[in-house]
Design a protein around this nucleic acid. Structure first.
Lengths: 146, 146
DNA sequence: CTTGACTCCGTACTGGCGTACGGCGCCAGA
DNA sequence: TCTGGCGCCGTACGCCAGTACGGAGTCAAG
């Protein structure tokens, strides 16, 4: 099982991780993956540790970390710096929550405008467009000074 | 108040909208803002309609629309195409909700991992790092075959 | 008249995450 | 031996929404 540990080419590594070759090279340029030296003639070989590292990177990306942050997390890979890792994760959680709040605001405004469009169907003036024109100030009560 | 309607320079327009001059030029290049012709010698003048258009763009941005989408919305600016505008908004709302769901997943995973780090404080192995290494499969129960 | 602020216009750069391209080397199978 | 497919390496390009820069023109005040 571990006999062919150092037997992978970059293409095989890529295929096993569902990643493009160029992506691995990009991670190498960014300092996230090591560049193994070429032992027997011209072609670099990759092992299970590289596979694991790639998995680490992909998993961290699913949590929303940027590659720069993942590089920091990888420095703590031995698992003995839990506080540092947790600090990075706490900051990321803050960012994610901030973004969620922003998006919730957008979704609320959009659905309210869509409701107004639904209610006023058939009228000549679109409430959505109208609200954009007046700068989103008045979503539900168009200021008809009458 | 409306005497100096055509009296604004691009810098004044920018200041009144809280936008950089270069941003307006960028919108012009993208076809979102018109480029007025220069009447009396070399300097283009902008009016209240340009101000309104800029406000429309900023308001739409707050709703999460991209500039390409805003260009489409601006084509419906007369307010007589409510169905088309609503269709664009519905799609955007879908996108926003999808993104919110993604981010909620991230936030949930992150806070769970942070809880695990808190619980296991003092231990030598960081659960956050450990989960990344094993590919995020096991968040709460490290598989100690004991 | 000069100075300083502003405008005009084109071009290049930012950040985040890759993708694409092109010329070369190397190696295995037919 | 030849050929096709990878691997190697550097560079450029893609998106998006701007930002920065630089030289030239113009305009108003001092």
């Amino acid at each position: 099982m571990s006999d062919h540990a150092q037997e992978m080419t970059i293409g095989q590594l890529a295929r096993r991780c569902g990643v493009h070759v160029e992506t691995i090279r990009y991670y190498q340029r960014k300092g996230l993956m090591r560049v193994p030296d070429k032992p027997w003639g011209g072609i670099r070989r990759y092992g299970e540790d590289d596979l694991a590292r790639l998995g680490f990177i992909r998993a961290a990306q699913h949590l929303g970390f940027t590659l720069a942050e993942i590089r920091e997390l990888l420095k703590l890979e031995d698992g003995t710096h839990c506080a540092e890792a947790a600090a990075i994760a706490r900051q990321k959680l803050e960012e994610v929550r901030t973004r969620i709040a922003q998006l919730n605001g957008m979704a609320a405004a959009l659905s309210e405008l869509l409701n107004a469009c639904e209610r006023g169907k058939g009228k000549q003036r679109c409430p959505l467009i109208g609200s954009l024109r007046t700068g989103l100030r008045d979503t539900r009560e168009p200021p008809r000074a009458e």
